[in-house]
């Protein structure tokens, strides 16, 4: 379970979050939506301690992570996969090395088992044949899939998706949707940050709509849509159509 309570965050004199609270139940997929720059990525980053809130509490899997230092965060980070907006692949390593990275760092799997695991993961993401290629030689959509494949190597219990479908073609978008749904069916808890309303509608159980540093609306899709605020309607319909 993920709990965010009274989250405040500012950069310089710019107040980004003025008290955001929400919860994500085990096995649930929460959609975090809102205009560009409302601070969706900031919340996601804070959930694994990449950013420290100015005030408020964040709890993951029963552990309050606010206030933990880098070393203490390792255990949480092993359980939580973060899908970066831009892939965030290591450009000095091959695709194979990228996928092997989390395993090499955190477990003592032997090379043969590791190779097998990486190759089958690549296969699963439709990336077979690109293991010895460097990320820069791949298309944007492929890089994105490598990023997701890498994040899934550790069989995470929580997944934070930052715009996983942005810039993907309909076919790949569909594949990502299926992946999210598949992981959900295995009990993975996730938060999906996206501008892609069809995807949000397809995979999310609930939505949280952020506006001006606060939660403007939350609930099921129907509940959020029935909000009186015309901005929300416009956001959802505008992006959906």
């Amino acid at each position: 379970m993920i709990k965010v309570h009274d989250f405040h965050k500012s950069f310089g004199d710019k107040l980004v979050h003025k008290g955001v609270s929400f919860e994500v139940q085990k096995g649930e997929c929460l959609g975090l939506i809102g205009g560009s720059g409302v601070g969706k990525s900031v919340i996601l980053r804070s959930l694994i301690g990449l950013e420290k809130p100015d005030r408020g509490l964040i709890e993951i899997d029963g552990v309050i992570i606010t206030g933990l230092n880098e070393r203490e965060l390792v255990d949480i980070r092993k359980k939580v996969a973060y899908i970066f907006q831009g892939g965030a692949l290591f450009d000095s390593m091959t695709v194979f090395e990228n996928l092997a990275y989390p395993i090499r760092e955190h477990s003592k799997t032997n090379e043969a088992a590791l190779t097998e695991k990486v190759l089958s993961q690549l296969q699963q993401f439709g990336l077979q044949g690109s293991e010895y290629v460097y990320p820069a030689q791949l298309s944007g959509g492929m890089q994105k899939r490598v990023g997701i494949a890498r994040a899934m190597m550790m069989n995470p219990e929580f997944v934070l998706y930052d715009e996983p479908t942005a810039g993907l073609d309909p076919f790949n978008t569909k594949k990502i949707q299926e992946l999210i749904l598949h992981l959900k069916s295995t009990g993975v808890t996730s938060i999906l940050v996206t501008h892609d309303m069809p995807t949000a509608m397809a995979v999310c159980d609930r939505l949280v709509f952020l506006l001006n540093g606060r939660i403007e609306a939350q609930g099921t899709l129907a509940e959020v849509k029935s909000e009186s605020n015309p901005l929300i309607k416009k956001f959802i319909d505008g992006e959906a159509s």
């Binding site: 965060l73 980070r77 965030a88 290591f90 450009d91 760092e105």
Partner: peptide, 14 residues
């Protein structure tokens, strides 16, 4: 800039 440092941290490494 390409978030590789973030990725190192996000995967529980330093």
């Amino acid at each position: 800039v390409t978030q590789q440092i973030d990725a190192i941290r996000a995967m529980g490494t330093s």
